[in-house]
Design a protein around this nucleic acid. Structure first.
Length: 460
RNA sequence: GGCCCCAUUGUGUAUCGGUUAGCACGCCAGGUUUUCAACCUGGAAGGGCGGGUUCGACUCCCGCUGGGGCUACCA
């Protein structure tokens, strides 16, 4: 428990080695929720000590992803590489105190040592004047991690090598840099992926050698793909930008991702971000790994799409399709809002308003037969007489036609749908006609009638 | 190989020693319907295996199996 006097400080510390994955997004979200929940501070730190893989572009990508998710931070981004002087200081202290030493051994030497000593004990080097810098690890005893999610986890010290904390050139390695940074930045709670659990004893050892108080830890389980393997590109939309491109809403993604491994305790599944902030507690996160299920995200996204205010919805659709939000697009959005689960699904439903009907031979052949011509003629006639071209009057005009002709409604409306959109799927037919407008509707029905007359000789 | 984590329907979870094992997505069937969605009703589907402990285990302990992580002069 946090005492009231101890302000919570958490950090999200991605390594910029590629796009931000869903797992990373969840870690970011959990840290953000924890910070906002207790009015603490979220620090963004970029773990870029691996110069090979850390590029400006990757950092950009991660920040973009966080922006899109609407997760903000209070401090940073802090470049870990930029804290090299602090790391060097700390390193110097350990060297001076004898807690760390330079080891001339190369990888082959370590391998040889291990071959000789078997698995009973981690590698122990011999101090020299140059080489990588290793931390002395005790031979006896355990290092225990007190984890908010896992409980008490013990690691025998003998299973660890005297691990390398800095390269021969003095540049520090991840586990060392993290320990120093977390301590010096006053991080009180480290919420991160389970893959770091086995690293934690090393960090604890560094912290102890440096005389720092360790933070509290919460290791959240990793995410897996539907095949049970670690989540990766093969599993479809695995990165935040892919989710965005697939037409998901940030709020829906936040809701869905929060529920991967965490639940509010009751049966609620639709939780606003505000609600998430109110109810989230890292110690309630589950222990087992979860599988990212895009189908459920789709469903949830659909719920958010339908419940969005129309204004917001139209803006999102416009932005997603890189179009101006004009009144026409606004009207089109209005009639399609109930129909789409993702932003990507909206345009196919409303494009007929902006572009000529698409060519869909299958749809044409399936619908434009039998009494289709008759239905279209009657519809054209009825629509020509409509003055106020809104959905209501269109329905009044066209609605009675099925009964008039003794046809099922589908036999009348599907031909109209194909005539004006080219396909068998669209928003409600009366609304679609109204939004398309009188002139275009009539023109398209006429075109369809002509095509029908030209290609299919009337049977009877 | 060594160290560590995990294990409830297909998926996410609830249950925390006594329940007809609940909910959500998905799936199946039916309803509604101008298409597609949405929506409504119903249904199938679960405690990996083996030992304990206990009057009683999904729940506690041990083993096994399976999955995962770490084991770099990567992060």
């Amino acid at each position: 428990m946090n005492s009231a006097s101890e302000a919570l400080r958490v950090r999200f510390a991605p390594s910029p080695t590629g796009a931000l994955h869903i797992g990373g997004a969840r870690t970011a979200l959990y840290n953000w929720l924890a910070a906002r929940h207790s009015e603490g501070t979220l620090v963004l730190r970029i773990e870029d000590t691996d110069l090979e893989r850390s590029t400006e572009e990757n950092v950009e990508q991660i920040i973009e992803a966080l922006d899109w998710l609407e997760l903000d931070w209070d401090e940073g981004p802090v470049s870990q590489a930029g804290r090299a002087a602090n790391h060097a200081d700390a390193l110097q202290r350990l060297l001076e105190s004898g807690a760390a030493y330079r080891d001339p051994a190369k990888a082959e030497d370590v391998k040889a040592w291990k071959a000789e000593h078997g698995a009973d004990r981690g590698y122990r080097g011999a101090p020299g004047s140059e080489g990588a810098i290793r931390l002395k690890v005790p031979d006896e005893g355990d290092t225990v991690v007190h984890d908010m999610i896992r409980g008490e986890v013990r690691f025998p010290n003998s299973s660890y090598d005297d691990f390398v904390i800095a390269r021969g050139d003095g540049s520090v390695l991840y586990n060392f840099a993290v320990s120093v940074d977390d301590a010096e930045m006053g991080i009180t709670e480290v919420i991160r992926g389970d893959d770091h659990l086995s690293n934690t004893p090393k960090q604890l050892l560094v912290l102890e050698a440096l005389g720092h108080q360790p933070p509290r830890y919460a290791h959240v389980p990793l995410l897996h793909g539907p095949d049970g393997k670690k989540l990766s590109k093969r599993h479809g939309a695995a990165s935040v930008q892919e989710l965005r491109d697939a037409g998901y809403l940030p709020a829906a993604v936040r809701n869905y991702v929060a529920l991967l491994g965490w639940g509010p305790g009751d049966d609620e599944t639709l939780l606003s971000t505000e609600e998430l902030v109110k109810r989230f507690d890292p110690s309630d996160v589950g222990r087992s790994s979860a599988v990212f299920d895009e189908q459920k995200l789709r469903w949830m996204n659909g719920r958010y799409m339908r419940e969005m205010p129309l204004e917001e919805y139209a803006r999102a659709v416009a932005a997603h399709n890189e179009r101006e939000l004009d009144p026409l697009l606004h009207s089109a959005c209005e009639i399609a809002q109930e129909k789409a689960q993702t932003l990507n699904e909206v345009w196919p439903l409303i494009r007929f308003v902006f572009e000529p009907p698409i060519e869909d031979e299958k749809a044409w052949r399936k619908i434009m037969k039998g009494d289709a011509g008759k239905a279209l003629e009657a519809s054209r006639e009825a629509l020509e007489a409509v003055e106020e071209f809104d959905a209501g009057s269109v329905e009044t005009a066209v609605g009675p036609i099925p009964e008039m002709l003794g046809l099922k409604p589908g036999k009348v409306y599907q031909p109209i749908r194909v005539a004006i959109t080219g396909t068998t799927v669209s928003p409600g037919i009366f609304e679609s006609i109204a939004v398309l407008g009188r002139e275009k509707t009539l023109l398209r029905i006429t075109d369809a009638l002509e095509r029908l007359a030209a290609s299919v000789p009337e049977p009877d």
